[in-house]
Amino acid sequence: MSKQHLFDRSEPEFLRIEGGVVTEHVHGVDDLKPRHDRQQGHGVEQEQPSPSQVAIICIQCGAGVIAGQHDNGYHCYACGGDYHLRNCPQCTRLVHIHGSLYGRKVQCLTCRRTSSWRRWERNSVRAGAVASQIALPQAEVADPDRRILGGVTIAAAGVPPLAPGIGCKLEFAARHILVYSLMTTGSYEVVQTVQYESVDFVQISGSGATTITTDAGLIGGGFGVKGAVEGILAASVINALTRRTTTTIEAIVYLKAGPSEVLLNTSTFTPAVLQVMLAPSFTRIEQARTGNNPASSFGGSP
């Protein structure tokens, strides 16, 4: 099997289940014990992988994570996520399953089939196997300050073929920003590399988290007092049974670098959380614009 780049057709799937229903993509883990590796990025210090460890990439935020070669899960210090590493029992696709889904039935978003947790458990994947498929040096993969944001393009200029409605990902790497576009082939490809010193600004806005509760909307009624009471009770029961609460997240990321501009709608983190999550990226931009060397430990060649 050939090694993957950060994004290609075999990019891991992820999902969130609420009340047994898949509501949106997420990511996932197995060994949920807190790891004690020290991280060096935004406020934490991370060591390079030892011979018994490997570096992999958090599917939720893109940060480098250190895990034991034989671990079948990981904890990300950057976003706080715990994930199980599994192959789909049906289509064998690698899936990062969020720790909150432990023990539950999970649907693979590739083959659309649902499997019991017992079947997922029999298809665990070791972190070493995941690391072997990443086509980057381990020292670069281990970068705890890398961030990857995915979403849908709202508007774009100077970054063809990005256009409204096209999938887009921004990778805030050690020395530059990689702009990915979803191609007609179904894979993501780098369409532009933005050097940090050329960034004019990165702005974050959006409505944040919005919670909506819906039900059947029935109003009870009937003839006479008894009929009205019975109708109201029946309507209340039906409304309670059909009531569903969903939370959606809207965060807008506006990247401008000279003639290149991207307006991205992402639903992974709220604007407030995203502002903190991208703090290492803001630091790298500032360092590059002031002539300092950003991320000397993880940058590769300038």
Rank of each mutant, 00 (worst) to 15 (best):
L136R: 15
A174I: 04
G68K: 10
R126V: 07
V29D: 03
A257C: 09
S116R: 15
E45H: 12
I285L: 02
Q90F: 06
G222M: 01
T247E: 11
T248S: 12
E24C: 07
S198E: 10
F223G: 11
T266V: 09
G224Y: 00
R93Q: 14
V276R: 11
Q39E: 13
G165C: 06
G99T: 08
R86K: 09
R289P: 08
M1G: 08
I56Y: 03
K226N: 10
Q46D: 09
C111Y: 03
I238F: 04
Q48G: 00
I56T: 06
A127D: 04
I238G: 02
C91M: 06
T268Y: 00
L85H: 14
R86D: 03
C111D: 14
L233T: 15
T213A: 10
T184A: 12
G291K: 01
K3L: 15
V276D: 08
R126F: 03
A295T: 08
Y102S: 09
A235Q: 05
V262R: 00
M183Y: 07
P34A: 03
D82C: 12
G73W: 06
C76Y: 03
A67Q: 12
G186D: 13
Y83M: 11
C88G: 05
R113S: 11
S267D: 15
S267K: 14
V21M: 07
L6V: 09
A288S: 13
P294N: 02
V54S: 00
